[in-house]
Design a protein around this nucleic acid. Structure first.
Length: 653
RNA sequence: GCCAUCGUAGCUCAGUUGGCAGAGCAGCGGUUUUGUAAACCGCAGGUCGUCGGUUCGAGUCCGACCGGUGGCUCCA
């Protein structure tokens, strides 16, 4: 007789074999009707398992019933998993040759991988959705059928589907199937569950896209078709989700960038950026800011060659590992590679002369132009390019100095992101990958050093096993933008391998040579990508300090053009980036054009302003802020720029 | 690189069963001299991604290639 504890602390004694549904009914018929699944914990709430409503509850446990109204990831997980089954059945009905593979819920929806020769195209989505709607209207219960492992394997082997057999063999313990309706009569699928009570509970869903996906993520395996969809507890939530997708589309840097005259891409230079004056202005602002921060933090900026001989890349190990992704060129019997990264160059600088331990830590930074021959299919606007510049840097230090350097870097990263308006930072620690150089003892030491630094700083982090670089583990710094999308920006990586391979040495206190540890680090990562993220985060409406054009000066009529010139010149004298619009349009369209360009301040100059030496200030949101003496406007702007918008200066906004 | 999908004017898009390549905005010229979310008239602008094929005739149908997009693999 299980005692079930509810979230409010109430304890219900239920008969043996009672289900979560029975519990819900006991609490209230409304809840029983609304419940989709249950969260159950047998260890006092440490670990929670999502379970079918109609499975018997475990012995004494804590339980929470999930309804459509619960805005919990688990609710969506179950709902979407079940919708994936419905979609799979619909596809099997429309395409009887389909072999089902795997269909999990994912962030924002679900997918189902299928093996089917005939391509499913977006035109087929409405047909699939209509078929799904039929299944939903039939309101068939999801029925769990448990088998012991032997019986289950026999059953799945009879289905003539190698993927499902694979799934079953890899699953641990006993096997379960879910029937969408009556066993023996309706669609069934090997599945561990859980599911919602019946198909009729699916209120809002949509088939969204189809793409290729290798079986088990293996390039050498068969390419399957992956059909994506999503589901929500209500039509309204689905609409909101689709609306969010539209909003994200409006922020797309590939649309906004060219619109604002920041950059363009063209097919003769795939993966490389043509920066226009306004985009380059932003680029320079970001670079200048980082340069200043690094200067304050004891870095020396350097510059190293674009082309270096193949032999150097062979020594560093890049030629062996990344040859396919490196551009190279032949001349006078030499093979030169265009640098894909700056570290080998920095090691060459380190190696000049005899280094003493007294010089460590030596921090070198470089805005070096790097090229990587990324596969054509991965290129994506500014976010994934072949030619880029990182805010790159390498710290040469001793083993003992690593924690201190990592800590200093973490502080710098946090400060920098704050200045760019990214406050939601999360950290991942990526550990040794399967293919790597260096022995396990070295990896142990490196991973422990990073973990210790993070712990000592009190920074929370998530472990990313196997995601480290081939030469060492790394810390990844991620931020979320204003739409909640995560972006990996900064990184710091310990490298015990490359300095040794390239012959870097320093003389230690003991008067013998030692190999320095090298920390690879970047705060923004690729500046191209960082600009892309800034564009999407701000939707083109950049804070004043980043805005490529800060002020548009517009005249009411020809009578004010002379004062307009004066204002533009004054602004430029004060270091502000200003443009003039003295065209013969009326003030309305001129303001509109400046707003379209997301220029933070639009000054209206008329005869009265010329007399007062004042400016009428408007912002890009269409708000008229008032008329101010010119000097006061500039003071406000300067304050806003130097504080990077962290506090609003009086009188300007 | 793989699967799907797309490519028409600077931008956003229309173009019927294969039958004279279009619109709005932007641009240029003119009129208007303007006080806060787009004044008026006119002009110009295209090898319909490229190459090949089918056809009396191709933006439209077929093939190859290039590039973009959504994913997959990859991301030192």
């Amino acid at each position: 007789m299980p005692n079930v504890t509810l979230p409010d602390g109430a304890v219900h004694a239920l008969p043996d074999g009672a289900t979560a549904f029975d519990l819900a009914q006991k609490i209230g018929p409304g809840l029983a009707k609304a419940a989709l699944a249950a969260l159950v914990s047998t260890d006092g709430g440490q670990n929670w398992e999502i379970r079918d409503l109609h499975r018997p509850l475990l012995d004494d446990c804590s339980a929470r019933l999930l309804t459509e109204k619960d805005d919990l990831p688990q609710t969506l997980y179950v709902l979407r998993h079940s919708t994936a089954h419905v979609m799979a059945e619909a596809i099997c009905r429309l395409y009887p040759q389909t072999k089902l593979v795997y269909g999990p819920p994912v962030d924002d929806g679900f997918y189902y991988d299928i093996d089917l020769e005939e391509p499913i195209t977006p035109e087929a989505f409405p047909r699939i959705e209509a078929e799904m709607q039929k299944i939903i209207s039939e309101d068939r219960p999801f029925t769990r059928c448990d088998f012991n492992r032997e019986e289950g394997l026999t059953k799945v082997r009879s289905e003539n589907n190698r993927y499902k057999v694979d799934n079953a063999v890899r699953a641990e313990g006993d096997l379960s199937f879910y029937v969408t309706g009556t066993p023996g009569k309706n669609f069934e699928d090997l599945c561990r569950g859980p599911h919602i009570p019946s198909t009729g509970r699916i209120k809002a869903f949509k088939v969204l896209q189809v793409s290729g996906a290798y079986y088990r993520g293996d390039q050498n395996e068969k390419q399957l078709q992956r059909v994506y969809g999503t589901a929500f507890p209500s039509r309204k939530l689905l609409e909101e989700h689709l609306h969010r997708l539209e909003e994200a589309k409006k922020r797309d840097h590939r649309r906004i960038g060219p619109q604002l005259g920041l950059f363009h891409l063209q097919e003769e230079a795939p993966g490389a950026v043509f920066w226009h004056p306004r985009g380059w202005a932003m680029y320079q602002i970001v670079q200048g800011y980082i340069r200043e921060m690094l200067g304050h933090n004891g870095y020396y900026e350097v510059n190293t060659p674009q082309l270096m001989d193949r032999s150097l890349w062979e020594k560093s190990g890049h030629w062996e590992k990344f040859r396919d992704n490196m551009f190279s060129t032949e001349t006078e019997a030499h093979t030169f590679a265009i640098k894909p990264m700056n570290c080998p160059g920095h090691i060459q600088i380190f190696k000049q002369g005899l280094r003493s331990y007294r010089e460590l830590p030596l921090r070198l930074s470089e805005f070096g132009s790097c090229h990587r021959n990324e596969q054509s299919g991965v290129l994506h606007g500014l976010m994934r390019v072949r030619a880029f510049v990182q805010d790159d840097g390498h710290i040469f230090c001793t083993d003992e100095q690593v924690p201190e350097e990592v800590a200093r870097f973490c502080d710098l990263v946090k400060l920098t992101y704050g200045d760019f308006g990214f406050t939601d930072m999360h950290i991942r620690l990526a550990t040794r990958p399967p293919l790597r150089t260096g022995d396990d003892a070295t990896w142990d030491r490196a991973e422990a050093a990073l973990a210790r630094s993070l712990s000592e700083l009190g920074l929370h982090y998530e472990l990313a096993p196997g995601e480290g670089a081939f030469y060492g583990p790394k810390i990844e710094f991620n931020v979320r933008d204003c739409l909640g999308r995560p972006w990996q920006l900064g990184t710091i990586q310990i490298d015990y391998v490359m300095p040794g391979r390239l012959g870097a040495r320093f003389v230690g206190e003991d008067n013998t040579p030692h190999v320095p540890v090298m920390l690879h680090r970047a705060i923004c990562g690729s500046l191209e990508r960082f600009l892309g993220i800034l564009i999407e985060h701000h939707a083109g409406s950049f804070p004043l300090w980043l805005a490529p054009i800060q002020v548009a000066v517009t005249t009411v009529s020809e009578k004010s053009v002379s004062y307009g010139h004066e204002v533009v010149n004054w602004l430029r004298q004060h270091g502000m980036r200003a443009v003039a619009d003295f065209s013969s349009d009326r003030i309305g369209p001129k303001k509109q054009r400046a707003r379209d360009q997301k220029i933070p301040y639009i000054l209206v100059i008329g005869e009265q302003e010329a007399v007062d030496k004042s400016v009428n200030v408007n912002n890009r949101d269409g708000v008229t802020l008032g008329t101010f003496p010119f000097e006061r406007f500039v003071e406000g702007c300067v304050h806003e720029i130097t504080t990077r918008g962290r506090e609003q200066p009086e009188g300007t906004s």
